[in-house]
């Protein structure tokens, strides 16, 4: 089983062609099925719309005016959030970018090289290595978080950035996917030809195989990025110093303070808005890459 994230968004030319062919076959529109999907879309967009409205209110308006009525304090709220403890929020944003961005990049490279070796080399113990890695897919990462804490505590790495970065670099699932991509997209003859020309194995991997696996690797990167950004428990356990928090742990802490100081709620809401906007943009932009993934045929979807 492979995994492909494929909210396909055909490029313009392709879309035009599709539309043209759809017109020939075009069948009567069904208001029911269109309607059900639109209701689903509204359900999914509603909280995002709400947070946009709510973050434009000051803390007294939040509880006194109708919740979907926009107000004019969005900029004030952003300034206030930025001033909170000398810009701690932006520190969280930066941390998140490091944890998810750097972590997912490292994870993708390691998954790629492991998957490539497992797909393209014949060596003793290969089956055993692959089966053990595969079992890792079934081990829920969340259950590992607490033992990882105790092990890292032994070597004094807890409450550092490493404690959040390192455990999330290994991704058995990513290796599994990379193995499929490597087998499907890197021709053995190319590897052998480069070898006869005297290229080193790492050179062959980095310069020849890696680009060939490209679109599939974007998928692995996205998966890992979302997984790290979504993982709340690991940083929640590992970190005590709030300067090291990712946005998720930071906002959850602010919400906790809100119970005694409701003015915090405005900060939490504005923070939630600011942290999902880049994600949503990234998501929409990367949809194109998911499409490449499909069109390139790297993965049979």
């Amino acid at each position: 089983m492979t995994t492909t994230l494929t909210p396909t968004r055909p490029d313009r030319a392709q879309r035009k062609a599709e539309r043209a062919s759809a017109r020939t076959f075009r069948q009567k529109a069904s208001p029911v099925s269109t309607g059900i999907l639109i209701i689903g879309a509204i359900y999914c967009l509603f909280p995002v719309f709400w947070v946009l409205m709510a973050s434009s209110k000051d803390s007294s308006e939040l509880f006194s005016t109708f919740t979907l009525m926009p107000s004019t304090h969005l900029w004030d709220n952003i300034v206030q959030l930025s001033q909170y403890r000398d810009g701690l929020f932006w520190r969280w944003v930066l941390n998140t970018a490091i944890y998810a961005g750097v972590g997912a990049l490292a994870s993708t490279w390691i998954s790629a090289i492991s998957g490539y070796v497992l797909a393209k080399f014949e060596f003793p113990g290969k089956k055993v290595v692959f089966s053990i890695l595969l079992m890792g897919v079934l081990v829920p990462g969340v259950i590992l978080a607490i033992p990882q804490y105790f092990l890292l505590a032994e070597v004094g790495l807890t409450n550092t950035m490493w404690s959040v970065l390192l455990p999330q670099i290994i991704s058995p699932y990513g290796i599994y996917l990379a193995r499929i991509y490597a087998a499907a997209s890197v021709p053995t003859e190319v590897i052998e030809a480069s070898r006869t020309e005297g290229a080193g194995e790492l050179y062959i991997f980095n310069r020849i195989a890696l680009p060939m696996m490209g679109p599939g690797l974007v998928t692995i990167f996205l998966f890992q990025f979302v997984a790290v950004w979504n993982n709340f428990m690991l940083p929640y356990i590992m970190l005590g110093d709030d300067k090291l928090f990712p946005v998720t742990v930071g906002l959850s802490g602010l919400l906790n303070q809100g119970a005694s100081a409701p003015s915090m709620y405005t900060l939490v809401i504005t923070g939630a808005l600011l942290s999902i906007i880049p994600l949503i943009i990234l998501f929409l932009v990367l949809q194109r890459y998911w499409k490449v993934d499909l069109a390139a045929g790297a993965v049979k979807a």
Binding site: A41, C44, N230, F232, T248, V249, I276, I280
Partner: peptide
Amino acid sequence: AIFLPYAVPAVI
């Protein structure tokens, strides 16, 4: 639209 919430982490 329906896929979008996947970009929003559970905490948020």
